[in-house]
Design a protein around this nucleic acid. Structure first.
Lengths: 191, 191, 191, 191
DNA sequence: GATGAATGAGTGTTCATTCAT
DNA sequence: AATGAATGAACACTCATTCAT
């Protein structure tokens, strides 16, 4: 298949790395081509335009960045609810350099490109998916009797906002004790 | 003083509005000059470079965006602690179009420009100021006997992360019940 | 024979249609290849270059666009001279969409490509062939006694210039009563 | 005035010459800039785009290329009608190298650019102006009693088509006795 | 204080062409 | 007989910046 193509994937990876390092706007096709070791027009053989490359990268990166990709609601029981919530949440947080690159590009899309409605909409849907996911999870907690049945939405949103923003702060180079904060957030919210 | 100069301030304001609308990278000096009603080189009379204009705008915008500008720790008493924390926190959140412009530019700096160490450092210091501010405030709460004296730092960080991220989400066009979420955050954290 | 080849002819026809529609300069090999349903390099199997394709198309199109292809001088008699001249001349004028495509490409060659001496020469020879053809025809008219034997060349050239330019005007979308004009031209010239 | 500007006019003239020599499509801004002795972006100081330059040149060139610019109908009398028609018509024909450049650019617009509706429409109107102009002139001839009052439109069109096409043929390098042809056309048509 | 004129470096994009397979 | 992959050269256009006036 053409998508298995070496150069094709090479371009995507180079773009990804350069976007993380210099930002999307400041990464030119020349830079990408140089990084891959080809000439600029060669990129056009694989992608119709810079925008098409962006689209492809966006989908490949965030295609399965969904709440349900991390949280399997049915795994949660009365016994493991708090613990599992803490542990799974931590997986959303960056720990290795690789994660930071991902977050950097994510944030690049969030801002540099969010002027474009197309991405803006997709990104908003991703964030709303997490807001809704945490709400569903807490509702399950209520069924299981481990979450008090009041202010569910506000609680869910707190969880989503905290886990998301820890990443942003760490991205800025601010050292947070992410495990501590997340654990305390879960405990506070679940009472 | 030359800084009182009308055109000088005119340029800064036009830049601010255009940055909010189109992003920093996509706002050219031509656009700014046109908006102000002068020619491009005239900007160079007032600012040595586009970067210098950025610097000036940054300082003017965020110069007093500090924790202590919003929160006067000595105003907090045992009686008003929770209420005052809630009400003051809400002032940090966007309610009018004016606030959104501010946030948009703030975020533009946060990402489009945070590749430059200079801004990155300043922005990190601002965020750390709020993290530290909330910590000090909670410590005052402990003194006042209205906050339990454990996990203070984690609690403070939750407050900072939530209030900050509500803005981000609203900026993306996600409708959150900001009062509800912030109230619940304060209540959960203060027990 | 390789020239009977289906794809070969397919390419020529696609080129012809696209030249008529978009002009020669603005028709790329990619467009032609797409239209034919092959890939760009495949064209190079059939033609050494875009220029070679142009050459081939030129010859195929205009190979028998000669005066004698339309006018058989020996068919003209004293009795039918005027009528036959009128009727045959009308066949040179565009009446169907098909004719317009031909004229459009002809004109494309006439200008877009006439910077190249090769085509310029061939096109000039075609036009001179018609000038000469009409002259011969009028000379036959003199022999037959239906044309007055003075200013033959000028008269012949008037015929050639009018019949040729009616096409150009119609190509521009100017509606002319071609039959009327041509009939009047023939009558005026033959006295 | 800024339009008196040396460079501005320099650019227009260089463009004009290069369009005549190489065609509009094949003349790049780089070529024009080189010819003028400036850099490419300098052109953008004077013209918003290549299209804007084309527009300007078009208007400057053909702005007063109208029938009434050459023919003053009221000058025509019964005594001078034929002679004046012949002499004025000859002024429409190219005699010096300068005229050829004009015609070459005219034809470039006629074809290379007539894909663009804007120019197509203007050019058509110019041609229709001449068709109508000759018709008005012949009607005056009828009033004066020097033109027979039948088939006026066809006669007028013959005049327009011939005078126009003589130019085209000479442009192709075909040597025509333009005075002879035009004289004979006028005589034939006026009977 | 500000302008007209210009520049060097760069952008994304297109094109005819090549060549190994 | 045709393709996938790539290239060099070009193109229109934009930008921050400079400088004489």
């Amino acid at each position: 298949m053409s998508k298995d193509n070496k150069t094709h994937q090479h371009i995507v990876e180079a773009a990804y790395q350069l976007f993380a390092e210099h930002g999307i706007e400041k990464t030119s096709l020349t830079m990408i081509a140089t990084e891959v070791g080809i000439t600029k027009p060669a990129i056009y053989y694989h992608f119709a335009s810079k925008d098409a490359l962006l689209d492809y990268l966006f989908d490949q990166l965030f295609g399965n960045y969904t709440f349900s990709h991390f949280f399997t609601v049915t795994d949660f029981t009365a016994d493991n609810f708090t613990e599992l919530l803490i542990e799974t949440g931590l997986k959303l947080l960056p720990s290795e350099e690789e994660d930071y690159a991902f977050l950097r590009v994510f944030n690049q899309f969030l801002l540099s490109v969010s002027q474009k409605e197309k991405y803006r909409d997709k990104l908003r849907m991703m964030q709303e998916d997490f807001l809704q996911g945490f709400t569903s999870l807490l509702e399950r907690g209520i069924e299981l009797g481990v979450v008090t049945p009041d202010r569910v939405v506000a609680k869910a949103h707190i969880l989503a906002l905290v886990v998301d923003n820890i990443s942003n702060y760490m991205l800025m180079g601010i050292e947070l004790d992410q495990r501590d904060i997340w654990t305390e957030t879960v405990r506070s919210v679940l009472k």
